[in-house]
């Protein structure tokens, strides 16, 4: 019981050509190659993917939920960034 735990890896899968890789979960593996092989078995048993990325979890840096207000709320009062903010006369087409 003394041995070290295999490192944890985050797994990202591209479900089909043309789409982004998306986070699907994590798994343990001794190295990157094994992480990709394990990800194939754990997360793509039913054609869920055409490409796999793995990143060792310790390398992921995340924003702090406590900063959410300061981070995201400034966008709230900038509705002029959305096209629906502007009125376009009915007679104008293709806009």
């Amino acid at each position: 019981m003394s041995q070290k735990e295999w490192p944890l890896w985050e797994v990202f899968i591209r479900s089909k050509q043309g789409l982004d890789h998306k986070h699907v979960g994590s798994l343990h593996a001794a190295d990157a190659e094994m992480a990709i092989q394990n990800a194939r078995d754990v997360y793509t048993r039913r054609l869920e993917g055409v490409s796999i990325w793995v990143v060792e979890s310790k390398h992921v840096h995340a924003s702090n939920p406590d900063d959410a207000a300061a981070f995201y709320e400034p966008a709230n009062d900038k509705i002029y960034r959305h096209p629906t903010f502007y009125t376009v006369p009915d007679s104008i087409k293709h806009m």
Binding site: E5, G25, S26, V42
Partner: peptide, 19 residues
């Protein structure tokens, strides 16, 4: 086996260790 692994990885996000 896969279901077990999805779930262990969910438990680990709470700070539990797999071992």
């Amino acid at each position: 086996a896969g279901h077990g692994l999805y779930l262990y990885s969910a438990a680990e996000t709470l700070g539990a260790s797999r071992d």
